Simulated assay, not measured.
Amino acid sequence: MLNALEILTTVTVGLMVGVEFSVAFVMNPILNALPEDSSQRGHTHAGRMLGAVMPVWYIGSLVLVGIWAVAGRHHDAAGLVAVAGALLILSIVMSLLLLVPINNRNKTWTPENRPENWKQQLNRWERLHYVRVAVIVAAFALVVTALT
Rank of each mutant, 00 (worst) to 15 (best):
M1H: 08
L5M: 06
E6Y: 09
E6G: 11
G18T: 15
V19G: 06
V19H: 09
V19A: 05
S22G: 15
V23R: 01
F25S: 09
F25T: 14
P29K: 08
P29L: 07
I30P: 00
I30M: 06
A33Q: 05
P35R: 08
P35M: 06
D37Q: 06
S38I: 00
S39W: 00
S39F: 03
S39Y: 01
Q40C: 03
G42M: 02
G42C: 04
G47K: 05
M49W: 12
G51R: 04
A52M: 05
G60P: 10
S61G: 13
S61D: 03
L62V: 15
V63T: 15
L64Q: 05
I67H: 05
I67S: 02
W68V: 12
G72R: 07
R73P: 08
R73N: 10
D76E: 06
A78P: 10
G79C: 07
A84L: 05
G85T: 15
L87R: 11
L87C: 09
L90I: 14
L90D: 12
I92G: 07
V93K: 02
V93P: 00
M94R: 05
L98T: 15
V100I: 09
I102Y: 13
I102N: 11
N103Q: 08
N104K: 09
R105W: 07
T108I: 04
W109M: 01
E112V: 14
E112L: 03
N113Q: 12
P115T: 00
E116Y: 10
N117W: 01
W118Y: 15
W118S: 06
Q121Y: 13
R124V: 12
L128P: 04
V131M: 00
V131Y: 03
V133G: 01
V135K: 00
V137K: 01
A138R: 08
A138Q: 09
A138P: 11
A139Q: 06
F140K: 04
L142S: 12
V144D: 02
T145I: 09
L147G: 15
L147F: 07
T148E: 00
